[in-house]
Amino acid sequence: MSNISCSSKEDLTPDREEPIEQPEPETRVLKEKASFGIGAAIKTSLMGESGYMQTVTTHFSQITAEWEMKMDAIWTSSTHYQWAGADKLVDFAIDNDLDVHGHTLVWYKSFPSWFKNAGYDSTAFEDHVKTYIKTVVERYKGKVISWDVANEIFNDNGSLRITDCPVHATFKDPIAFYGRCFQYAHEADPDAKLFYNDYSVVIAPGKRNAIKNMVQRFKSEGIPIHGIGDQFHYRINNDKSTLRNGLNDMASTGLLVHISELDIVMNVNKSDNYVFTEAEAKKQSDMYKHIAESYSALPAQQRFAISLWGVTDKHTWLTGSWHPKEYPLLFDQSYQHKEAYKGFLSGLN
C-alpha cells in the first residue's frame, strides 16, 4: 500500500491570479514606429496654411510632389525649365530631414502641349525626353532618393495603353523606350532607386502580370529597375484578402514594393446624402490597419515606403475628382488625426 501524503490547507488554496499587465499606450507617431518610409504627397501652395507643414514634419519621413515634379509643371519649352515649385519642395525636405520620392518622369498625361504638338519622329522624341530626364535627375542628384520613372503604361487587362499616349503612337516597341528611360535616369543618378508606378496593381491580375513580365524583360536586358509602386487608390469595399494577396504577388518580383498614393474612398456610391459616421470611421480604420499589416508582413528588404496621397481631408484630390463628400485620409479638415490614423499606426511594424 503506497503512502499518499496529504497536502496542507495552504497548498489547496487556489493560485491567486496575477493582474493582467495592460499594454502601454502607443506614443510614437507614424514615422517613429514604421521600419520603412512613411510619405505624404504635398503641394507647395499649401505650405503657408496653419497646421499643414507641422503635420507633415511631425508624422512623415518622406514627401512626394503632388504635381510640381510632373513633366508639364517643369518643362515649359524645349529649352526652358520651371524649377521654382520643385526646388521649393526639395529645399523644404532638406531643411526638415525628409526624403523625397520624385514623381514622375514619364507619364502619358503630363507631356506638355508644346511637346505633343511638335510632331517629332521617334528619334527626336527620344532625344528630347532623354535630355529632359537627365536634366531633371541630375539637378536633384543626392537630394531625391527615388523616382517614378514611368507611370501607368498598362491597362487593367495587361494591354499597353494606346489612347492619348504619345509614346505608343511614336514607338513600335514602347516597352523598349521605357526601358531606355530607366537607363537614362540611372546614368544621371546611379544611387537613386527607380520605380515603375501604376494603379490597381494588386486587384488587376492582367496588369500585374504585364508588369511582372516587363520586370523580367528589364532584368534580362540589364535595365536598372529597383521597385514597383501601386497607387492604392482603393475603396472601403475592396476585398481585403485580394489586396494582401496582390501585394505578396508584387513582392514575388524580388523588387522593392511601394504603396505610393494611398487613400481610401468611403462614399463609394457618390451619394449627396453620405455621412461619415463613427461606424464609417471604424471601417476605414480597420482597412488602414489591414493595409499596414499586409505591407509590414512583406520581406523587410522589399519594404520601401507607404505614401499617403495627401495630408488632410481638407485638401484631397478626391473631393474634386470623386465627390465633394469624401474623407479618405488620416487627418480631418482641422488636422486632427482620425480613427484611420490609429488603425494605420497599430498595423505598422
Rank of each mutant, 00 (worst) to 15 (best):
P14I: 04
D15F: 14
D15S: 14
R16P: 09
R16C: 13
R16D: 13
R16V: 15
E17G: 13
E17Q: 15
P19M: 08
I20D: 02
I20E: 09
I20Q: 08
E21K: 04
Q22S: 06
Q22C: 02
E24S: 14
E24I: 12
P25G: 05
T27R: 13
V29S: 09
V29T: 14
L30R: 10
L30I: 09
K31H: 12
K31L: 11
K31F: 11
A34V: 07
A34Q: 08
S35D: 14
F36L: 10
F36M: 10
G39I: 05
G39A: 05
G39L: 03
G39V: 06
G39N: 05
G39Y: 06
G39S: 02
A41N: 10
A41R: 09
I42P: 04
I42N: 00
K43M: 13
K43Y: 13
K43I: 07
K43T: 11
K43H: 14
T44Y: 06
S45A: 12
L46G: 00
M47E: 10
G48E: 12
E49Q: 07
E49L: 01
Q54R: 08
Q54D: 14
T55H: 01
V56S: 08
T57L: 04
H59D: 10
F60T: 01
F60C: 02
S61D: 04
S61L: 01
S61W: 03
Q62I: 06
Q62W: 03
Q62G: 04
I63S: 06
I63H: 09
W67M: 13
W67N: 15
M69T: 10
D72C: 04
D72I: 01
I74F: 01
S77A: 09
S78L: 13
S78F: 13
T79N: 15
T79C: 06
H80T: 15
H80E: 15
Y81S: 06
Q82M: 10
Q82P: 05
Q82N: 15
W83C: 11
W83A: 13
A84G: 11
A84T: 15
G85Y: 04
D87C: 06
K88I: 06
L89C: 06
L89H: 08
L89V: 10
F92A: 07
F92G: 07
A93L: 12
I94A: 14
D95M: 10
N96M: 03
N96H: 10
N96L: 03
N96C: 00
D97F: 07
H101E: 01
H101A: 03
G102A: 00
G102F: 02
G102V: 00
H103R: 01
H103K: 03
H103I: 02
L105Q: 05
L105G: 03
L105R: 06
V106G: 02
W107I: 10
Y108A: 10
K109R: 15
F111S: 13
F111P: 12
F111Q: 11
P112D: 01
P112Y: 07
S113I: 12
W114R: 09
